[in-house]
Amino acid sequence: MALSPENRAGLDRALEAIAEAEAGPTVADLTGAPTIDHWRPLRSGSHTVVLWGNVSGHPLLGRDTTTTSPLLAIDVEARWARTKSRWYALGRPFAALEAELAKSMGVERPATDFIQFALPGYLPLESPDQLPELLANYIAWVREFDAADRAAAGREG
């Protein structure tokens, strides 16, 4: 079954965002990007990873705690992330806050997930090493979905 025009437009926007993520950000992309602090990647369903954190400078939310749209790419060293909807500048990761809080409590070597919280519908990643594979799998899934829709609608890629 072919997608509705609205759903096809959403899929096309996701494909554009994937292409932008693969190319990496320009200086202009990051200059106006919202910042996400105390960010933590979370799984949502079998295909999707999002970032959870405190966002500032967001065009719709202003300053708030949020989960992002699906994460497509992240470069922790260069301090950026690309989601389906926008670029983000990365502030402090949640792990840094967690370590700081543990130290202030006299815990020198905190266990993984020293600070635990539940966000319904989301699970923390078991290991940060999972992230590249999960993002690659999500992108492959989007592209497979696109190919199936194009075939159903009789369109060429």
Results as ranks from 00 to 15, higher is better:
residue 86 R to H: 11
residue 30 L to W: 01
residue 80 W to M: 03
residue 132 P to D: 13
residue 81 A to W: 13
residue 97 L to C: 05
residue 149 D to Y: 00
residue 57 G to T: 08
residue 48 T to Q: 13
residue 63 R to T: 10
residue 123 L to A: 12
residue 24 G to E: 10
residue 95 A to I: 08
residue 14 A to I: 04
residue 73 A to P: 01
residue 40 R to V: 01
residue 47 H to I: 07
residue 61 L to K: 13
residue 15 L to T: 05
residue 67 T to A: 09
residue 27 V to H: 10
residue 111 A to W: 01
residue 70 P to T: 12
residue 107 V to F: 11
residue 64 D to I: 02
residue 64 D to E: 12
residue 141 W to E: 11
residue 93 P to T: 07
residue 22 E to I: 00
residue 126 E to D: 13
residue 29 D to W: 09
residue 64 D to T: 07
residue 3 L to I: 06
residue 26 T to F: 11
residue 98 E to F: 15
residue 133 E to Y: 02
residue 24 G to S: 06
residue 143 R to D: 04
residue 35 T to P: 06
residue 25 P to A: 14
residue 74 I to N: 03
residue 152 A to M: 11
residue 18 I to E: 06
residue 29 D to T: 11
residue 131 L to S: 04
residue 59 P to F: 02
residue 125 L to R: 03
residue 55 V to R: 02
residue 89 A to K: 13
residue 100 E to H: 15
residue 40 R to F: 01
residue 61 L to S: 11
residue 156 E to Q: 12
residue 36 I to N: 04
residue 98 E to L: 07
residue 145 F to W: 01
residue 140 A to V: 08
residue 3 L to H: 09
residue 26 T to N: 02
residue 47 H to V: 12
residue 130 Q to I: 03
residue 35 T to Q: 09
residue 52 W to A: 00
residue 16 E to S: 13
residue 7 N to Q: 14
residue 48 T to Y: 00
residue 125 L to F: 13
residue 95 A to N: 06
residue 98 E to K: 15
residue 12 D to E: 15
residue 108 E to A: 14
residue 116 Q to L: 08
residue 28 A to M: 09
residue 103 K to N: 03
residue 148 A to L: 14
residue 40 R to E: 05
residue 22 E to P: 02
residue 130 Q to C: 08
residue 142 V to A: 06
residue 20 E to V: 02
residue 48 T to I: 06
residue 118 A to H: 11
residue 54 N to W: 07
residue 117 F to K: 12
residue 36 I to T: 01
residue 64 D to G: 02
residue 121 G to E: 10
residue 6 E to N: 14
residue 84 K to N: 03
residue 49 V to E: 00
residue 87 W to G: 05
residue 2 A to L: 02
residue 60 L to V: 10
residue 139 I to V: 11
residue 51 L to H: 01
residue 36 I to G: 07
residue 137 N to Q: 13
residue 43 R to V: 08
residue 112 T to H: 15
residue 23 A to W: 05
residue 138 Y to M: 03
residue 97 L to F: 08
residue 146 D to P: 01
residue 86 R to L: 12
residue 57 G to K: 04
residue 18 I to G: 08
residue 134 L to C: 08
residue 71 L to G: 04
residue 94 F to G: 00
residue 8 R to E: 14
